[in-house]
């Protein structure tokens, strides 16, 4: 049991930090522009596919840098020539725009790269088990994912709070008019932030591609969970995104690891059902079966009891 829990924790950390890479970009874009970017997970998918293709010519390491730069550039173009025009028509139009973009990217990926799973492998340098515990390997590549994600968090935090650009970005989130009046190019800041957010999503894709497999459905499986994280963490909060990502990652991992069912719970409080009871399907539910819906349950509860999220500021 303890071995399963240890691995569940390790794995929860890897997943959680990967989710953070995605959520950080999304929350940055949201706090700056007020846009919930539905196409965010599509940039994640683009990152994985670009890295796969670039990697065939250059190997993994250059692709790790090139793919996010490429997708970041594409994101900046989307903001500059798409979203900026839609912006005039208000937030609903922006929302619908990103929603449509997500479908377009998915179809484009499928027609360009095909519908089959891509043979995207971790680099040979990291293709060994870092350590073996209770008979299970922990791949070195996953440790690398952990390190990169932590590095990005520290870098982002430092960049936003300690550098001049970061200060301007922060100021632009809370007092856009003042920042513009001081002579800063607000639209350019928006383009840069959107590009950077897309690049972060792409980086997550590059890292996740070899582990979670690269296929056209990869955006859809991760897309909704990222919104859950951003809402639970508090819209616009970087720390919130980190805490919520880890929370969701660990929660899902643990829920699968622990074989507790409704039956055990009821048994514990002294209630027994006959096996042919009409509600037997509910009675037989187990925690691992519920694992994928737990984040959404948390989302609903959070919206009911604390709508601003863990670290969010209530909009004044």
């Amino acid at each position: 049991m303890i071995d399963v829990l240890i691995f569940a924790t390790l794995n929860g950390l890897v997943t959680g930090l990967l989710l953070f890479l995605l959520a950080s970009g999304l929350t940055l874009i949201f706090s700056m522009m007020g846009v919930l970017n539905f196409a965010h997970a599509s940039f994640y998918m683009l990152g994985a596919y670009c890295a796969f293709s670039i990697g065939q010519y250059t190997g993994f390491w250059p692709a790790l840098i090139l793919a996010p730069v490429l997708v970041g550039g594409f994101g900046a173009l989307v903001e500059r020539y798409g979203l900026r025009h839609v912006h005039k028509s208000g937030h609903v139009a922006e929302l619908v725009f990103t929603f449509g973009l997500a479908f377009l990217i998915e179809q484009a990926v499928q027609s360009f790269w095909g519908a089959d799973t891509k043979n995207y492998q971790p680099p040979a340098l990291l293709d060994f088990p870092l350590f073996t515990l209770f008979g299970q390997d922990f791949p070195a590549y996953k440790a690398f994912m952990l390190l990169v994600s932590i590095g990005i968090f520290i870098g982002l935090y430092w960049g936003l709070t300690r550098t001049r650009t970061g200060m301007i970005i922060q100021a632009a989130t809370s007092h856009p008019q003042t920042v513009a009046n001081l002579g800063h190019n607000l639209p350019l800041i928006h383009t840069l932030v959107f590009g950077a957010g897309s690049a972060l999503a792409a980086l997550a894709g590059v890292l996740a591609g070899p582990v979670l497999t690269t296929f056209p459905g990869m955006a859809a499986t991760l897309g909704s969970i990222v919104f859950v994280i951003v809402v639970i963490g508090g819209l616009g909060s970087l720390t919130g995104a980190l805490v919520a990502s880890l929370l969701i990652g660990l929660l899902q991992s643990w829920a699968i690891a622990v074989d507790v069912g409704m039956a055990d719970l009821l048994h514990w409080v002294g209630v027994e059902f006959p096996p042919d009871h009409p509600l037997k399907d509910i009675w037989r539910l187990s925690l691992p079966q519920l694992a994928p819906v737990l984040p959404y349950l948390l989302l609903v509860l959070m919206l009911i009891f604390h709508p601003s999220g863990l670290f969010g500021k209530r909009e004044g």
Partner: peptide, 21 residues
């Protein structure tokens, strides 16, 4: 004897930990 939701699981590692255990 484990059932997981179809097309929803991002990462099977937690399931594999149970298989190993």
């Amino acid at each position: 004897n484990e059932l997981h939701p179809i097309g929803q699981v991002k990462d099977f590692t937690p399931y594999v930990s149970k298989i190993v255990a």
